[in-house]
Simulated scan of single mutants.
Amino acid sequence: MSATAPIHQHSQHEGQINVAILGAGGIAHTMARTLLAMSSDERYSSLINPYAVAARDRDRAAAFAEQYGLPVSYGSYEDLVADPNVDLVYIATPHSLHAEQSLLCLEAGKNILVEKSFTANARQAQQVFDLSESKGLLCTEAIWTRYMPSRGIIDEVIASGEIGEVVSATANLGYPITAHARLVDPALAGGALLDVGVYPLNFLDMALQGRDPSRIASAYQPYSTGVDAQSSTTLFYDDGIMAVASSSMLGQSDRKGCVWGTSGVMVCENINDVSSITVYGPGYEVIKEHPIPDQLTGYEYEVASAAHAVLEGRQECPEMPHSDTLRIMRMMDEIRGIWGVRYPFE
């Protein structure tokens, strides 16, 4: 069903959050499936109400809403944020648009969950956080690995001393994805770094517990359009720890994240949706395997965290506070600075 004026059908239950999706591309479909699954799962059904979608094309939005049974659809983002029934907006557009759309939502009084990469650079991120904090609204980055149960398991392994004292870490992510026009377009903040490279950097940041590197070294190979096609970045820390992040949009990588300790190593398979965590001893023998809990899609954790934050009147989620997003954005700015890569709009 399509709507031009707001449909007054607030949450069926008190304390239920009406979630709207801004954008109707690939990741918006994943989020819609997630919201549907949550609405029929007893752990989340009293918390989440899948409510609306907006696209720049009214027919596309209406078709999307019909596909997922959303009661409301809008042919403009302005109409969506004007709907008083919307409690939380998930921003599912290319990251070059995140800053302006985040500001649009916040100005209209909407809480937001913004797909990674949060913005194109740290200056934009700071602008968005300044507004969310002044308005007292939730604003959080939807980088799902920060919210998943696997993160807690990784923290526990490191804290337990199972691998000894951490001395190094590595993480990589690569897919052949240059066929996606947005990813090779400098005007859309294309390149491997902001799309896939953000995961290895976040993995290392979590493994090393949010410390600022004292020095960064990085090198990249450009794509024909000038964006980064693949790169390797080494982070150096004051206590002697080193960490290496690699990303590529040209080829498949093994997608592993490893944390090296004085008495063992923890290996995480598939760092952008961890599928297994194995601890190896000094002779690379398996010491322990940590199972990963079953999940609906993996997106439910960020949605639930954001919904609880809205109900509790918080401006950030503990899994990805503003300071963590800003640190990652500044790191990516510094890495691009080393390469000499700027987006046309910067």
Score class of each variant (00 low, 15 high):
Val166Asp: 10
Met332Tyr: 02
Arg255Val: 05
Glu346Phe: 10
Gln295Trp: 02
Glu162Arg: 13
Gln16Asn: 08
Thr119Glu: 07
Ser323Arg: 15
Leu250Ala: 11
Leu201Cys: 12
Pro318Asn: 10
Val310Trp: 09
Ser76Gln: 06
Leu250Phe: 00
Tyr74Ser: 08
Gly298Asn: 06
Pro149Leu: 12
Ser73Gly: 09
Ser224Val: 14
Leu235Thr: 03
Tyr74Gln: 04
Leu193Ala: 09
Val86His: 05
Gly152Lys: 10
His29Asn: 11
Arg327Ser: 07
His13Gly: 06
Ile158Thr: 04
Leu80Gln: 01
Ile7Gly: 08
Glu156His: 11
Ala20Glu: 09
Asp79Ala: 15
Ser253Asn: 03
Val72Pro: 12
Leu88Ala: 06
Arg123Tyr: 07
Gln252Ala: 09
Lys288Glu: 14
Glu346Leu: 03
Trp339Val: 03
Pro6Ser: 08
Ile112Gln: 04
Arg342Ala: 08
Ser134Pro: 00
Ile7Trp: 05
Leu208Lys: 05
Thr233Ala: 10
Tyr74Ile: 03
His290Asn: 13
Glu334Pro: 02
His180Pro: 00
Val89Glu: 04
Ala61Thr: 01
Tyr77Trp: 10
Pro84Asp: 05
Arg330Pro: 01
Cys317Pro: 01
Gly174Thr: 10
Leu104Phe: 05
Leu193Tyr: 10
Asp333Leu: 12
Met38Tyr: 00
Ser247Lys: 04
Val167Met: 08
Tyr299Ile: 03
Asp324Arg: 11
Ala217His: 13
Ala54Thr: 05
Asp205Arg: 12
Arg215Glu: 12
Ala65Trp: 01
Asp205Met: 12
Val89Leu: 04
Met38Ala: 01
Gly197Trp: 11
Ala120Met: 14
Val81Thr: 11
Lys288Asn: 14
Gln315His: 09
Glu316Ala: 14
Val72Asp: 01
Leu131Ile: 03
Leu235Trp: 07
Pro344Ile: 06
Gly283Phe: 09
Ser117Leu: 13
Asn18Leu: 08
Ser45Val: 06
Ala192Phe: 06
Ala37Leu: 15
Ala37Gln: 12
Glu66Val: 04
Trp339Ser: 04
Val128Gly: 01
Asp130Pro: 02
Asp195Phe: 14
Ile112Met: 06
Pro282Leu: 12
Ser253Gly: 13
Glu346Val: 10
Arg60Tyr: 03
Pro84Tyr: 04
Cys105Gln: 00
Thr4Gln: 14
Asn272Ala: 07
Asp324Thr: 10
Ile335Phe: 04
Thr233Lys: 07
Tyr299Phe: 15
Met332Val: 05
His95Met: 13
Ser214Ile: 15
Gln221Tyr: 08
His180Gly: 07
Leu208Val: 11
Arg327Met: 08
Met148Asp: 05
Gly298Ala: 07
Phe118Val: 06
Gly264Ile: 05
Tyr343Gln: 03
Tyr280Ala: 00
His29Cys: 07
Met242Thr: 14
Tyr280Lys: 03
Trp260His: 13
Thr119Gln: 09
Leu104Pro: 00
Arg182Leu: 06
Val286Tyr: 00
Thr4Gly: 14
Val259His: 01
Thr140His: 04
Gly190Ser: 11
Val167Gly: 11
Leu97Val: 03
Asp239Trp: 10
Arg215Met: 09
Ala55Gly: 11
Ala54Trp: 07
Arg33Phe: 06
Gln230Ala: 08
Cys317Phe: 00
Asn202Trp: 09
Val89Met: 08
